[in-house]
């Protein structure tokens, strides 16, 4: 349903964000995208979202080539990007055409911000702001959800809670999820397939399929083995490529 065919992105100043990425994503699949800093992960998500239209190659969603933001797309940016003039409640309802109060309240509860509905973003901590951003994206239950390191600003416990929230959402709506992360455990916990980008500009280096039903145990032995493998793949000194 989402297919990426030989897509590259070169900026007008000559730097290339990433190049020659080929990927087919099935409906309901969760893809974890790993890669070192600066290898083009955020750029890739921007291209997939339709915000960045100057790419080479083809991005196709349900048979339609992407030239603009597709209606099925939802996105959580690397920064919270809250509207500073709106209270938490209105920020979460920002993308809803109809503000359904019960739905907003449900997500305020899910991200643990009950009691903060009437705070302005300036009065939130970094992690709280990011949770508002997460709720704002999830409340519209998009069919394809793009997440750019959504949980990296959070403490370990909140992080696990929100990973489970994402998992719940996925089980309810069968959303297709592309999750950029630096956290290998997170990718192993959530993803059906892990994509590893390497180099600068980044290229698709390795794909790892994880055939384990979800929810998974966080201390799973097979996953620990995979984690070692991924660490080696990411570590530049252990490989010959580039």
């Amino acid at each position: 349903m989402l297919s990426i065919e030989r897509v590259s992105r070169t900026f007008s100043n000559g730097t290339t964000g990433f190049k020659n990425i080929d990927l087919k994503v099935e409906q309901g699949e969760v893809i974890g995208i790993l890669g070192t800093s600066g290898c083009g992960k955020s750029t890739l998500l921007r291209v997939l979202s339709g915000l960045d239209k100057q790419y080479d190659g083809q991005v196709v969603i349900d048979g339609e080539t992407v030239h603009d933001v597709h209606k099925k797309i939802g996105m959580i940016f690397q920064e919270p990007r809250l509207m500073p003039w709106l209270k938490v409640y209105d920020n979460i309802g920002f993308g809803l055409q109809k503000k359904v109060q019960s739905k907003i309240a449900q997500y305020i509860k899910a991200v643990g911000l009950v009691g903060f509905e009437n705070h302005y973003p300036k009065d939130l901590s970094g992690g709280m702001a990011q949770r508002v951003a997460i709720a704002r994206a999830l409340v519209t239950s998009p069919e394809i959800l793009l997440l750019d390191e959504p949980f990296s600003a959070l403490d370990a416990f909140t992080k696990m809670q929100l990973q489970d929230l994402l998992l719940n959402l996925w089980q309810t709506y069968q959303s297709t999820i592309l999750l950029v992360t630096h956290d290998i455990d997170e990718a192993l916990y959530l993803a059906d397939r892990i994509i590893i980008l390497r180099g600068q500009p980044g290229e698709l280096y390795q794909e790892i399929k994880i055939d384990k039903s979800k929810p998974r145990s966080r201390g799973d032995k097979d996953l620990a083995v995979l984690k070692d493998e991924i660490l080696q793949l990411l570590d530049l000194s252990h490989s010959k490529a580039i």
């Binding site: 209606k71 797309i73 996105m75 940016f77 990007r81 509207m83 920002f94 993308g95």
Partner: peptide, 11 residues
């Protein structure tokens, strides 16, 4: 520009 992109994501 980043705030405007949020609006674009929501069409």
């Amino acid at each position: 520009r980043k705030l405007i992109e949020v609006g674009k994501i929501y069409h």
